[in-house]
């Protein structure tokens, strides 16, 4: 196995928290503040890993398994994603299904860990999480089906290799629709505005944050790191399709990829600065819209 294949996992493991830092920095900049350092997420993780833990008396081993499953699922997912033309570490035809479903596994356990505490707030967050993710899943897989049709491949590696500037000039509208759908899924799955507000401090309005209220110490570090990895992986998927830098030279590809990730972080920051969170009742419509965009892209590529 040649070294470039390790690129995606290594990049994700090292730089995933950085992405959060950039997003927050952009938000602060747009809001006219200085904001936390770009490396703040790393300091938070280090601090949490040094702490002890407090567990609720209501909880069982499920509660402790939740954060671990979250991190491991995201780590497995990084092994399925390529960087530009470089094949993924573990890519195979159909790997996109595994990608979608390991995140499903992580969500299942996060939700169960939330229910394990017996807190009504966490139950509420869990209820919202399963509702929105059930609607985001078809949008994600249909969008990838459109890419599969366009590139004639069923592995993420093959799809990313099939997308190029040329593909964008011939099937631009379809790929733009796919990118839009994936952006919506990305925002929803990572609990960002306009679906969920990561900076909120009112339990009644939260989705993801409220599910992890009871985690502390190393467990919470795992939760944060797992969330950062998930942000990275879904972001990398979007960037791989929306930024068609395929030169054949792994360094240039990686640079294009990095620039794309940075741009995505800036876009997320800008969206969060300029939009309000949607009413919870409107979120399903947003996600159904994402699925409709994917379906539209499929109609375009099917002819």
């Amino acid at each position: 196995m040649e070294a470039p294949r390790l690129a995606q996992p290594v990049l994700a493991i090292l730089f995933a928290p950085l992405l959060l830092g950039v997003v927050n920095r952009v938000k602060a900049w747009v809001g006219g503040r200085r904001g936390p350092p770009v490396l703040q997420a790393y300091w938070d993780l280090a601090k949490l890993l040094r702490k002890g833990a407090v567990y609720s008396r209501s909880t069982t081993w499920i509660f402790r398994a939740g954060p671990i499953v979250g991190v491991c699922a995201a780590l497995v997912a990084t092994a399925l994603l390529p960087v530009g033309d470089t094949p993924a570490l573990m890519g195979f035809p159909g790997d996109l299904i595994l990608l979608a479903y390991v995140f499903g596994l992580a969500r299942f356990f996060t939700v169960l860990a939330a229910l394990d505490t017996g807190s009504s707030f966490e139950g509420m967050g869990a209820s919202r999480e399963v509702q929105f993710s059930a609607l985001a899943e078809p949008a994600l897989l249909l969008a990838l089906a459109a890419v599969a049709r366009n590139t004639g491949s069923t592995s993420l590696t093959g799809m990313m290799q099939g997308i190029s500037v040329h593909a964008w000039t011939t099937a631009g509208p379809a790929l733009a629709l796919v990118s839009a759908a994936l952006l919506l899924v990305f925002l929803a799955e990572n609990a960002r505005i306009p679906v969920d507000d990561p900076a909120t401090h009112l339990e009644l309005t939260m989705i993801h944050e409220v599910m992890v209220l009871d985690h502390g110490g190393p467990d919470f570090a795992f939760v944060l790191y797992g969330a950062a990895l998930k942000l990275w992986v879904l972001g990398a998927l979007l960037v791989g399709i929306a930024v068609p830098v395929r030169s054949g030279d792994p360094w240039i590809d990686a640079a294009g990829f990095a620039a794309g990730m940075l741009a995505l972080a800036v876009v997320v920051g800008a969206v969060e600065s300029s939009m309000a969170r949607l009413k919870l009742l409107r979120v399903p419509q947003l996600l159904a819209g994402a699925a409709a965009l994917s379906a539209l892209a499929l109609i375009l590529v099917l002819r």
């Binding site: 629709l177 409709a292 539209l296 375009l300």
Partner: peptide, 20 residues
């Protein structure tokens, strides 16, 4: 052809948004 396709997509999207 791509511009035509863009028009098509915009038409569909405006129609659906109008309904919603």
């Amino acid at each position: 052809n791509m511009l035509m396709e863009t028009v098509v997509v915009l038409l569909i999207l405006t129609n659906l948004m109008l309904l919603g």
